[in-house]
């Protein structure tokens, strides 16, 4: 089921959606699903369910580290569907974020079938551009799944036009040139990119890369349709002494972020 209604609801409430990323399988599959439930209970609207991958070229050290540890404890691609089912069951949008090769190896059509059956909303594909995504676009359309492609500050008007034309659900605007990771400042590039993107699409535009606290979420939420937070959430889990402490820290940060998007346009 598409995340479009979730974004619609947030828009009706006069706020940006809060989108939180966590990798499946860290610290364990069950632990990661419990963490996703904490996010939903703390006000996160859409969960980005991360697929741990051996060669994550778009990720900074925090998410790389979590992926390595998840793979080391034996997370499997099929665990993604378990997580999607749990997230959808908890009432949040369940988008899967994955590098392309795991989907390719699993089989694009088979992956789309299983994701739709689990209640997943669709895919965010950081290393798959629409130009190379013919099979995925066809499968997503057959299974009524969202296709979230990325745009970047370096994107030309031609690229913005081509990419947004193939998106469904929302457009993922990477706020800065660089890999994932919390940053002191999200920068002016994000606002400019959102404006430029809107010249090419009526889809919601959500901003990711760098947001780490409620104030930044409020700032980004003033101009974006959704605020995407990843590394800061993951760090709550990787730096915790125990899984329970990790969940506690995660809840505190998620509520701070939710309050941030809540006051963003007030």
């Amino acid at each position: 089921m598409s995340v479009a209604p979730v974004l619609e609801k947030c828009r009706a409430e006069g706020r940006a959606a809060l989108i939180g990323y966590l990798p499946v399988g860290f610290p364990t599959v069950e632990g990661s699903i419990a963490a996703m439930r904490v996010l939903v209970d703390s006000g996160v609207d859409i969960i980005e369910i991360g697929v741990p991958y051996s060669d994550p070229v778009m990720d900074g050290p925090v998410i790389q580290d979590a992926a390595v540890r998840a793979l080391a404890v034996g997370v499997r691609l099929s665990d993604i569907f378990t997580a999607a089912e749990a997230v959808a069951g908890a009432g949040a949008g369940a988008l899967v974020m994955t590098y392309w090769n795991p989907v390719l190896r699993y089989g694009v059509e088979r992956f789309a079938t299983d994701l739709a059956a689990a209640g997943g909303a669709g895919l965010i594909t950081p290393d798959l551009i629409p130009d190379e995504a013919g099979d995925w676009i066809a499968a997503a359309d057959r299974h009524d799944l969202d296709k979230v492609f990325l745009v970047a500050p370096s994107s030309t008007p031609e690229r913005l036009e081509a990419v947004t034309a193939q998106c469904r659900g929302f457009v993922y605007a990477t706020a800065v040139m660089g890999v994932t990771g919390a940053r002191a400042s999200v920068g002016e590039a994000a606002g400019a990119l959102v404006s430029r993107t809107r010249e090419h699409t009526d889809l919601p535009v959500c901003v990711g890369l760098g947001v780490s606290d409620g104030d930044q979420a409020a700032e980004v939420g003033r101009f974006a349709d959704g605020v995407i937070v990843g590394s800061a959430l993951v760090r709550c889990l990787t730096e915790a002494a125990t899984p329970a402490e990790g969940l506690t820290a995660l809840g505190v940060l998620a509520r701070d972020l939710a309050a941030g998007v809540g006051r963003g346009r007030s």
């Binding site: 070229v57 778009m58 392309w100 950081p126 290393d127 798959l128 551009i129 190379e132 492609f149 990325l150 745009v151 970047a152 500050p153 370096s154 994107s155 030309t156 690229r159 990419v163 990477t174 040139m177």
Partner: peptide, 8 residues
Amino acid sequence: YVPEALIP
């Protein structure tokens, strides 16, 4: 097969 940021 690379991030959009590198396409330009």
